[in-house]
Amino acid sequence: MATFSLLVTANPHSSQGQFSAIQFAKTLLHQGHVIKRVFFYADGVLVASRLNCPPSDEYNLTKTWAKLAITHDFELTACVTVAMKRGIINATEADRNALTGENIDPAFEISGLGQLTEAMLESDRLVTFG
């Protein structure tokens, strides 16, 4: 049994990386491994918007991540710098930047790149999905 963290940089709307990451995470958990944190970076942060609204017959990546993380008690963290650039905003940043609203899904948190480094230091493996 090992501790894993994932780095997800894939764009949820235009590439398969997020789907692969979820399948990988499910398999890890099924095999008894532990996931410490899934860190979203680059276009990967786009999955953290609770306003993502795919057609009803398509897979909802945001909700799937949220359910998995809550069920298995691991963290979903989006990098603040790249998230803000892409319009993924929490209440604190909305307030600080005088924006009209926030859109982060409650299962996700926005934090700094230090959380990626910390995940590396506290995990046996980090696997990137780009």
Partner: peptide, 19 residues
């Protein structure tokens, strides 16, 4: 693309953790 800039940020942050 942004990959150079984003990798640089990872490098500098990890360096701050003495990796």
């Amino acid at each position: 693309n942004q990959s150079g800039r984003e990798l640089l940020d990872i490098a500098l942050m990890a360096a701050a953790f003495d990796m």
